[in-house]
Amino acid sequence: MNTTTTTTHYPASTKTEQIETRTLCVLVDNEPGVLARVIGLFSGRGYNIDSLTVSETEHQKHLSRITIVTRGTPMVLEQIKNQLDRLVPVHRVIDLTTANPAIQRELAMVKVRGTGDQRMEALRLADAFRARVIDATTESFVFEITGTSDKIESFINLMLPVGLVEVSRTGVVAITRGPEGM
């Protein structure tokens, strides 16, 4: 019995399971406050959000698709899915990490400032990563890059020494492979 349990009447935490990362796709009614319900659930119950994207995807049915990247033990991850599913405006919750093979992508805009060799180096690296120039001045570029979060992460790290100014990222979107829809 450890010291915390002698002074509290709550049972001690027994969580010793491994932490895993999951990408969840949540189909919701696009109604006022629905995002607040989803986010409030995560903050209220102490779950993590690593990334979150949301947009209406079926205009006629007013359905929005939320993609959430979250972390937790298997038991917590199951709770997250069940708790999300319980929300009244939530239609479906799909675990894109375990259910089917899925593709995950993220888009980032990366602003780099520099002149001379630095500028050329930035352009060469961008080319290697298939990033596009979407804005240019004599002393800066804005690159657009699409890919997995890891790829974007490496690109940003490489841009650091050549004059990284700022980054804007969309967060992860994902879809299953193959002909079937969710």
């Binding site: 038991m75 199951e78 709770q79 069940n82 708790q83 599913d85 319980r86």
Partner: peptide
Amino acid sequence: IDPSSINKNVK
């Protein structure tokens, strides 16, 4: 009746 009550605290 509530799936989120299942496996929340005890497997």
